[in-house]
Structure formats: structure tokens, C-alpha cells
């Protein structure tokens, strides 16, 4: 049994394909969509959690890559720059999933990447701009 959050990028020519249908029907995966955007260039971005049988999951990932989709693990999407973070904590009440949180009693800000849903609210909530996103994400606002 595997449970993994991933980010899919759809080139314009397959943005209208019923990919999720195939993940459920052909690979028997559970799909929880966290966020979906299409930019003006008709490129799609889908952030979701997949869970199911390990082998089926691997086959599904390979199938999606074969379809021309770009598949990434979600952990690589939002970058917390420890060198910029001043551990003030302003982000901790803005982050909706508590991926950014205070470790008490030391009052150190921590980032649990596995809880992040790439909502990107932290990017502008951080006064020191310690949170960054991949350049490609800038097209999906």
C-alpha cells in the first residue's frame, strides 16, 4: 500500500484527456485532488494524493509518463530557505495544513513537506520571503 502526493503537468494537447478516470478505472488507485489549474497557455497542473497497491501505483506513474505527462513528487514544489527564515512564525497561522509550524518550546519554525498542498499562501505571508516556488509554478497563480 502506497500513499503519495504528486504534481502532474499537462502539455496543452493532453489537458483535455480523462487521466483521472484511467487512474481509478485501470489502476484501481484512490485519487484525492488537492489543487488543479490551467494557465493561459492551456498547460495544466494537478496536485493530488494517490494511494493504492504499490505495483499498480508504479505502473500508473509509468503510464502517465508514457502519455506525455510530467510527474513530480510534491515535496520538490515549495522550497523553504532556512538561510532566509528568521523563525518569526508569521507563516504558521496562514498555512492551512500546518505544514509550516512552530516547534515548541524552542519556537523554531519547521516545514513538513509531506503536509504541503502547494497553495502558495506562505510565499507572500513570509516577510523575509524565505518561501520559494519553482519558476514554472509562477504561471499558475
Amino acid at each position: 500500500m502506497i500513499r503519495q502526493k504528486i504534481v502532474l503537468r499537462f502539455p496543452p494537447h493532453i489537458v483535455e484527456q480523462p487521466t483521472i478516470y484511467h487512474l481509478i478505472k485501470d489502476f484501481d488507485l484512490m485519487v484525492n485532488i488537492l489543487r488543479a489549474d490551467i494557465n493561459p497557455k492551456k498547460e495544466g497542473r494537478l496536485i493530488m494524493e494517490l494511494s493504492g497497491d504499490d505495483t499498480a501505483y508504479k505502473q500508473a506513474i509509468e503510464w502517465m509518463k508514457g502519455q506525455g505527462l510530467e510527474v513530480m513528487n510534491l515535496e520538490q514544489q515549495i522550497i523553504w530557505r532556512d538561510d532566509r527564515c528568521t523563525h518569526c512564525g508569521a507563516c504558521t497561522v496562514i498555512c492551512p495544513t500546518e505544514a509550516l509550524y512552530f516547534e515548541r518550546p524552542d519556537m523554531i519554525v519547521k516545514f513538513a513537506e509531506d503536509k504541503c498542498i502547494v497553495c502558495e499562501l506562505c510565499l507572500r505571508a513570509c516577510p523575509a520571503r524565505a518561501m520559494e516556488t519553482l519558476v514554472e509554478n509562477a504561471n499558475f497563480g
Binding site: 528568521t86 523563525h87 508569521a90 497561522v93 512552530f102 515548541r104 519556537m107
Partner: peptide, 23 residues
């Protein structure tokens, strides 16, 4: 405030700081 929430007018409110205690 440092515990993570305060109670105001009977409502529990999450707290955050702008000044860094760790620093």
C-alpha cells in the same frame, strides 16, 4: 500567546509572532 492559541470573547484563536523568539 506562545502556547499557540489565546481565548478572546470566548473564541479560541491561533497565534503567530512577527518577532523571532528563537533569534
Amino acid at each position: 500567546l506562545k502556547s499557540g492559541s489565546i481565548s478572546v470573547e470566548g473564541k479560541k484563536i491561533p497565534t503567530a509572532s512577527l518577532s523571532s523568539y528563537a533569534k
